[in-house]
Design a binder for these strands. Sequence first.
DNA 1: CTTAACGTAGGG
DNA 2: CCCTACGTTAAG
Length: 134
Amino acid sequence: MPKPRGGPGPPQEDIYEFSLDGDEDPKIFLRGGVMGRASPLAEYIRAEHHQAGLYSLPLLGPPEPPGAAAAAMAAAAASAQKKKRKRCGVCVPCLRKENCGDCSNCFNRKVGHQICKLRKCDVLKKKKSAWEVS
DNA sequence: CTTAACGTAGGG
DNA sequence: CCCTACGTTAAG
Ligand SMILES: [Zn+2]
Ligand SMILES: [Zn+2]
């Protein structure tokens, strides 16, 4: 796709992390005054554990996922904002490896921008409310 | 830039 | 209520 553009566009995702233009403020920035002697990775792991206890544990894969630091930051920011949620990674649909290739979403994938119905995360299937107790 | 996918509005 | 389309986010 020819997109004649040379302007250095700031990553939209990063904007929320420190800007929050007149829309909520998470104030969840990692701060500790003196932090630097210990491995920065350790700090990130720490944050990850913190967020895990706060709401959920979006860890993907049984062993330690590579990039836990980024995941922790993303999760923390996402929870503070009303950003898009990520798949839980533990439900059956999430565990699906490939698209069925036979559902509407698979056919309209190019225009619908939706994941295969068989792979749609159970958690993301709904938004809020708890299925009402009939 | 490219690809994948969530959120949501609109239509049926 | 479910399906489809588009915009947008998020990651590579
Ligand atoms: Zn499918
Ligand atoms: Zn899931």
